[in-house]
Simulated assay, not measured.
Amino acid sequence: MIKIKQLKQQNEIKRLFKLYLEGETNARQEELLFRQLNEGGDKDPILFEEMKDSWENEPSSPDNSQEAEESFDQIWLKVEKKSHKRLQRVQVMKYAASILLLLSTGLGWYAYQKKESIKTVQLISKITRAGEKLKLILPDSSVVYLAGNSKLNWPSHFTKGNTRNIYLEGEAFFEVKHDTTSPFIVQTANLRTRVVGTSFNVYAYPDDKLATVTVKTGKVAVAENVKGKVKRLSFLTPGMKLIYQQNNGKYAVSSSTNVNEANSWTLNRFVFRDESLKGVLAGLERYYNVNFIQKGKHFDHYKFSVTFSNKNIKDVMEQLHIMSGNKLRYKITNNNTVITVWEEAAK
């Protein structure tokens, strides 16, 4: 009966040892492995041979990097601390001699995996042209709709338990896969938007005065992040919109936004609320891939609240012409250029 128990214990140690080398052990299993070795597992000749083989099969050139040294020190301190209560210093060193093979092999695997991780985790970048829309699927199955004249950077894969960091220049609508252990963070020039699982729109073109975050579902935390200094701004829930002035950091929060407007542009429905004509034309440039030439004044003086649903650029301009009381004149050329003239007194 005792031999059967010892055999089971030996097999368990070997099983945990193999898992350790493969990087598949959790904290509890590693604690159990060290404890069993401390209680006599290091005297097991079969396990010792297995450890010896692993040591001999390791690459001859050791990893002397600072990270490897620090990792070894941390593990060594844990081993010494756990063993000190029951063993004298001499006994600890005797124990350490036998377990050194295990530690060295494990550290070699750790350093190798870390280097491989750095090699394989690449930053993927996508840039859209004016008038272009892209639907992207991220490694965690989150969905991103990228608007025109925008750029999105993201890692080739996400690590469970770590933050999912995304970098945006321009506009994008996000449908984030829920994962409470891995917060999803969208970083723009000045804003950091943090979520767990929700859908929201971020508008943050570097050359625009305003940046906005609009929530459709879930909850969003928005913070200012300028030169590494983070300042929390607001928590947003569905229908809320944060409007941030990129030149001075001032912001306001609106709670009356229609949730369906958050991603309306992905459905070719463009909504402008109390927007200057200059701002409307800037948005239309990105959505329709046209170039506006503005002649005259007053493009910044007048505000428009308008919606364009599945209209071509000619119909859009005609609608603006009528809404302006015929003061906005336009001419569409053959090379996707729209010449606009504002006449204060139409004749």
Rank of each mutant, 00 (worst) to 15 (best):
S276L: 11
E58F: 03
V186Q: 03
S125G: 13
M317Q: 04
V222Q: 00
K85I: 10
K81E: 09
T237K: 12
V92F: 01
Y251G: 04
A172R: 04
M51K: 13
N268R: 09
F158Y: 10
L191Q: 15
Q187F: 15
Y145V: 01
V290R: 00
A96L: 14
L236C: 06
L242Q: 01
L134T: 01
V143T: 15
D53C: 10
P62I: 08
G148E: 07
T181F: 04
A262Y: 02
G325W: 10
R164E: 11
L123A: 03
V220S: 07
I99W: 08
F184E: 00
S234H: 15
A282E: 04
G296A: 03
N289Y: 08
F272M: 07
Y244M: 12
V186L: 04
H178A: 12
V338Y: 01
F200L: 05
Y20M: 12
S54V: 00
Q88M: 11
A147V: 00
T307K: 01
E58A: 13
F72I: 10
P206L: 07
T25F: 07
H157Y: 15
Q294I: 10
Q6I: 00
V230P: 14
N260A: 12
P62Y: 14
Y112I: 05
M323F: 08
D208S: 05
N326E: 12
D53A: 11
I313Q: 04
E67H: 12
G296C: 13
I339C: 03
L102I: 15
Y288A: 06
K94A: 08
K43V: 05
A346Q: 08
H301P: 01
F200M: 02
T257K: 09
L191G: 06
Q9Y: 04
I118N: 13
L210R: 02
F272I: 06
L191F: 06
W76T: 00
Q9M: 11
K331T: 02
L236I: 10
K5P: 00
S182I: 00
S54Q: 09
K229V: 15
R194H: 02
G228L: 09
E31Y: 07
D208K: 13
Q6K: 12
K231E: 14
V176R: 00
K78Y: 11
E12A: 09
I185M: 14
K177R: 04
E12W: 02
E56R: 14
S71K: 03
N57S: 14
N11M: 15
N334W: 03
K3H: 10
V226W: 08
N260Y: 14
T212A: 09
F299L: 10
L103P: 01
T181L: 10
V271F: 14
I332E: 11
I46H: 02
L37I: 05
A27W: 06
K241L: 11
T333K: 11
V338R: 08
V92Y: 11
V220W: 08
D274V: 02
V226L: 05
G218M: 09
F48T: 06
E24V: 08
E69Y: 06
E69F: 02
L102D: 03
F299D: 12
V215H: 06
A221I: 00
I137C: 06
Y288E: 08
A189C: 06
P206K: 15
H301S: 08
R286T: 02
T266W: 07
M240A: 10
F304Y: 15
Y205I: 11
E275C: 12
N11S: 07
K115A: 14
Q246A: 14
K231G: 12
K297I: 05
